[in-house]
Design a protein around this nucleic acid. Structure first.
Lengths: 254, 254
DNA sequence: GTGTTTATCGTCAGGCAGACGACTATGATC
DNA sequence: GATCATAGTCGTCTGCCTGACGATAAACAC
């Protein structure tokens, strides 16, 4: 089909964000409450229109900053040491079912952001209300008796969230992405608890320690120690330059 | 940002296709020659506008059929046995740089299609001219003396193609996707030559045979044999139901 | 001190991959 | 028909990595 610039169907293009973090040993996603129809009052993923002069990644980074105050890392030029308050941001997938928005044809380019644990969502964004919710809670079919039962996510956002969670779960297997859930300096135990929360499993601390400290370039010791978690002081590490884990971290069966 | 259906910047949305196949022991992509500006006369990836009532995957499947005659498998409901002439189709990524098309704001949802070796591109599509070209030829910076030197691909299509090739290279590691490059019945040697072509390496036939025949659910013997390749007759297999390879096929270093 | 918690080091057996030898079954060539 | 070249298939061996789990170390709470 020849490109005919004068005869194309116009679409609205948005970015939606799956922002994940680990809070209290559970994987949580950022949800905002919709202030207007459709799906008024329901929880949804943060997002918004891509502007005329904006790249998709820029739009996602702007929305992320508006909703959370987080700056996105440039994954290509990783600012080295004390890049605190930076989040990992990558494109997830694009959703364009003709009926996904009842008002008009909207194509949404979903992005996945991974952030360390944050104090609390800042309501400085456009949404009046925002919260970190455990992903199982947002994804469970309709709940089976939780106290404050919430309706499922607006639009196809449950689908998008599920895809984002699955991306995160699989990607920490073969990359150093799990460190994006950690503060700039962290212990092996904190990193292990990230894996446990994201995968929903428990891992052997000894084998985990051997694996991550034995993988060249994954972790670099900072020299400091901490007793944040109680018990014997643990060494502090920063993420090393390696981005790919080879061989990968194996996710336990079941 | 509240959705305001009356005030969104209009975008054109297209699908572009990275269609890969293995021909003569080399990984090839489908390229079409542009018949009009911009980039008139240059090679490009096939693609076109998404229609008003079409899902993104539908649009990609339609373009694929127009350009190659191939039908896309439904990856969710894999038609079992003799699904000949079916190609694997999946979304790749979305490209939306404001300047990627000099005429207007175009967001392109790229898709990746993997097909068995085909007789020849059918020029039934909108493009007057189409060919299978080795991916290195399409991707090399500008060539270093090949006889019929081609200008690089139009738009950001070299970038899209590189992403598609990388997706295919990594995905055959941990999935049974390599069988999408094979006819419905194939030998272990043919499957190995797919891996060798996609990765650009040579693999030990004995270890490869042990790996693929030893992975439950990957290959199911049909009972027949063939001597297509010369030498001792080889068993014929179909792709088994397994889609994930665990442990993965390891891509050799370097 | 005693108990608890967490971190870290070691040991051992099993599984799997890379390297490679050996044998089999076809077609091509003399 | 014997020989050769080509592929396919089965084994063996070694080294690495993982899972299971024992043991020790260093903090805190009583």
């Amino acid at each position: 089909m020849p490109y005919d610039p004068s005869a194309f169907p116009p679409f609205a293009v948005t970015v939606d964000l799956v922002v994940l973090t680990v809070r209290r040993h559970s994987l949580c996603a950022l949800a905002v409450r919709r202030g207007e129809p459709p799906f008024q009052g329901r929880w949804a993923l943060p997002g918004g229109f891509v502007r005329e002069d904006e790249d998709l990644t820029q739009a996602a980074a702007r929305e992320l900053h508006e909703e959370t105050g987080l700056r996105a890392h440039d994954p290509v030029v990783p600012a080295e040491p004390p890049q605190d308050n930076g989040a990992h941001l990558e494109q997830l997938a694009t959703y364009g079912d003709p009926k996904r928005d009842p008002r008009m044809r909207v194509v949404s380019v979903a992005h996945l952001a991974l952030a360390p644990d944050l104090p609390a969502p800042r309501p400085g964004g456009d949404a009046g209300d925002a919260r970190w919710a455990p992903v199982e809670e947002l994804l469970e079919p309709s709940g089976d008796g939780g106290p404050d039962q919430e309706a499922p996510l607006a639009f196809d956002h449950a689908h998008i969230l599920a895809d984002g969670v699955e991306r995160a779960r699989s990607k920490i297997e073969y990359s150093s992405l799990a460190t994006a859930f950690c503060p700039p300096e962290f212990t092996v135990g904190e990193l292990r608890r990230v894996y446990e929360a994201v995968w929903g499993v428990t891992l052997d601390p000894r084998n985990f320690h051997r694996k991550v400290t034995g993988t060249p370039g994954f972790l670099v010791p900072t020299g400091g120690t901490t007793t944040r978690q109680g018990g014997r002081p643990a060494q502090l590490f920063r993420a090393g330059g390696a981005t790919l884990l080879n061989p990968p971290m194996l996710r336990p069966e079941i």
